[in-house]
Amino acid sequence: MALSDRIPYQAIVDRPKLRLPDGKRVAVWVIVNVEEWRIENPMPRTVLPPPMGQPLLPDVPNWSWHEYGMRSGFWRQYQALVDRGIPASLAINGNVCASYPRVAGAALEAGWEFMGHGHLQGPMHRLDDQEGAIAKALDQIESFCGTRPRAWESPGLTETEETLDLLRKHGVEYVADWVIDDLPQDVATPFGRVTTLPYSVETNDIAVYALQGHRSDEFLTRGRDQFDRLYAEGATSPRVMAISVHPYITGVPHRIKYLEELLDYVGGHEGTQWMTASQLGDWYRTELTRVTGD
């Protein structure tokens, strides 16, 4: 069976009519991605091309580009979210709990939900022991937080044919890799169902800046337009919007104000319901049961 065959097609206009608490229109979840890039390895992403096209290790400038986010950028994003009382979902490489405990500790103290995001940053396809890496990441986070993650976002949204099964086997219920809809959707595995959470590559700062090279204000413009349409549609049936950020991208001085302005714009609508990953998944499952009995 092709992996895509496990995600049955459903038209948004045919989905059951769900309800958000207090008549809200849009569930919005903010994902802060914190990762460990090892300086001895090729960088997962680069901002400067290698001299004469020949990759060099250690890659000091591109490693430093990311490291700036963990040292400075994260704290701008952290303050923006904490000051506004917005519950965030922290997509975290498991080893970050050991290598950047100051970052992980601040998120834990703020009450953010920890999502698995691999052990170290790199595609799932490159792992020699995918199951072992998944278990290790979840164990590291559980040891640090005291609770096992219920949600997961694969590095780079990468999956193999067995990833969903292995995630569910190790206790993950909600996965953010499938950017297929504006509502969650269930996927069957031999270990029980996994629910996909609406994520985004369009309102993700990696796509806007690192890949597409837009001006600093594009994140605000695109995010506002995305929210406006979902908010209008949410008058008849709720929608979900994801805002996904990385400390080394929107945490820099010339971009942080646009993230802050987007949070203020979204939060300024009374029909907005802020949620974390598991809150979103639990809401969907409860509402689906209410409407369909499934």
Rank of each mutant, 00 (worst) to 15 (best):
Y231N: 10
T158C: 10
P155G: 02
G281C: 06
S278Q: 12
D5C: 10
P238G: 10
R229K: 15
R255I: 00
I256A: 00
S4T: 15
G111C: 05
Y231W: 05
L220V: 02
R229Y: 14
V252H: 01
G271W: 02
G234R: 09
K169E: 08
A232D: 12
Y284E: 00
N93W: 12
L108A: 15
A133P: 03
D217R: 09
L157P: 13
L230I: 07
A80R: 01
V47E: 13
E142F: 00
I31T: 15
R38Q: 14
Q212P: 12
Q212D: 07
V245S: 06
Q140C: 09
W75A: 07
E260W: 00
C145Y: 08
Q185Y: 07
R239T: 02
A107T: 04
A110W: 06
E218F: 14
V252N: 01
Q226Y: 14
K24M: 04
E270T: 02
F219L: 03
Q279S: 04
I256H: 01
H117I: 02
Y68E: 11
R19G: 12
A88D: 13
E113F: 09
V82A: 12
N95I: 15
R84I: 11
M1A: 12
W112L: 02
P61T: 04
G53W: 00
D294P: 11
L230Y: 10
A277P: 00
M43G: 08
L57H: 03
I92Q: 04
A110C: 12
P198F: 02
A207M: 15
V96R: 11
R290M: 05
P184R: 05
E131P: 09
A176E: 03
V208W: 04
A106S: 09
M70G: 11
E159I: 03
I206E: 11
L263C: 05
G85D: 03
D177A: 02
P101M: 08
V82F: 07
V26S: 07
A107Q: 06
A104R: 09
G94L: 10
W63N: 13
A104P: 06
P198L: 01
L230V: 11
E36W: 11
T250W: 05
S244R: 10
I39L: 14
S237G: 13
Y258S: 03
R290P: 01
T276R: 04
G251N: 01
V34H: 14
M115A: 10
D14C: 12
D182W: 03
L20I: 04
V175M: 14
L127W: 07
D186M: 13
I92L: 10
G234K: 13
V194K: 05
I206N: 12
I86Y: 05
A207E: 15
D282S: 08
W152Q: 00
M115F: 08
Y265V: 00
G213Q: 06
G293V: 03
V103K: 14
A80T: 08
H66A: 14
S244Y: 10
A137M: 06
D5N: 14
R229C: 14
A98W: 15
A232P: 11
W112G: 04
G105L: 01
Y100D: 11
R19F: 13
P49N: 07
G73H: 04
L164I: 09
T276L: 05
V194R: 04
V28P: 07
E113Y: 05
G111S: 09
L157V: 12
T163S: 01
I141L: 04
D22S: 03
W152A: 06
A106Q: 14
Q273F: 14
P8I: 00
P149E: 02
Y9R: 15
R102H: 10
